[in-house]
């Protein structure tokens, strides 16, 4: 079976005054109808991997890969015009903070309608029905009111649900969620995750869940890639995260304070030069 997304040896590089900076250095993975977590610290290349898939790396940044295919069809360095037809319609993205992703001077409803019509070409009335249906699908109690609200009139958790509604309206095959709950309080976070979980499952989408939160990813995803310095250093089933073999993954887990496991002192990660280039653990 052809995977939804196949990425082989992805590289993203930016020229700087002090030479080429390689943000992503040879990342390979396949995505099926599953929840794939991508975990790493800031600068590990996890966000850049997501942006490269969506064709959102701006020049002078350069994207290279042996293969980057959506359902078997290459999407590597497509001309912007063709990428626009894919983006939103077939691959969509939810970012960290709805405050910066929603247009502040346009009502929520108009934004969803506009995006949906762009990808489907349906009538305004049909798009409006779809928008209300999607707002209801993300558990917004009064879709009619929220439809007419401006982004500043809704809370962060509601804003994130609106983003999910907007991104899932055209029924994409793949959703890339980049820290979708990091700006939210824990109670709201779990609610948003539940909605995301349900929608992804019901629609049989592939989800790439980018996060710095290992434990959350272990709880939410099926499979996890751990990134370090632009590479995948370990790949494993989410439920086995706590049996991780790579010292970096272990180090990250141990450095987290935990409610259920009091320690006198937190373990400090001892970074090793070899992690940058050693082959990944657990790779197929």
């Amino acid at each position: 079976m052809t995977p939804l997304l196949s990425v082989r040896n992805l590289r993203v590089a930016f020229p700087t005054r002090s030479g080429l900076f390689e943000a992503v250095r040879g990342v390979s993975f396949e995505l099926g109808r599953e929840r794939l977590g991508v975990v790493g610290e800031s600068g590990s290349g996890k966000t850049m991997t997501g942006r490269a898939i969506l064709g959102l790396v701006r020049p002078p940044g350069r994207v290279d890969a042996d293969r980057m295919a959506l359902s078997g069809e290459s999407i590597l360095n497509l001309p912007e015009r063709r990428m626009r037809r894919l983006r939103g319609a077939r691959i969509s993205m939810v970012m960290q903070d709805p405050k910066f992703s929603l247009n502040p001077v346009m009502t929520v409803g108009r934004q969803i309608v506009e995006g949906y019509r762009l990808h489907t070409g349906v009538s305004r009335a049909q798009a409006r029905d779809k928008a209300l249906e999607m707002l209801a699908a993300v558990q917004i109690r009064d879709p009619e009111r929220v439809f007419h609200a401006y982004p500043h009139e809704v809370s962060g958790g509601m804003g994130q649900r609106i983003m999910i509604a907007m991104m899932l309206a055209p029924d994409p095959e793949i959703l890339i969620a980049d820290e979708p709950t990091s700006a939210l309080d824990v109670s709201v976070r779990n609610e948003v995750l539940r909605i995301l979980d349900r929608l992804v499952r019901e629609r049989g989408m592939g989800l790439i869940f980018i996060s710095h939160d290992l434990n959350l990813v272990a709880q939410f995803c099926d499979r996890v890639l751990i990134m370090y310095a632009g590479r995948v250093v370990e790949e494993l089933p989410a439920r086995d995260l706590h049996a991780a073999r790579h010292p970096y993954t272990q180090g990250l887990l141990n450095s987290l304070p935990r409610l259920d496991r009091p320690v006198e002192r937190l373990a400090v990660l001892q970074r090793q030069a070899g992690w940058r280039d050693a082959p990944p653990e657990g790779a197929a």
Partner: peptide, 25 residues
């Protein structure tokens, strides 16, 4: 008490439970 989840009130108890993370359906 925080570690044991032994909160007196509903709100604190819910907050502690939510912090424990996401439980999949």
């Amino acid at each position: 008490s925080l570690r044991a989840g032994a909160a007196q009130g509903d709100y604190a108890r819910a907050l502690i439970a939510a912090s424990a993370g996401y439980v999949r359906e």
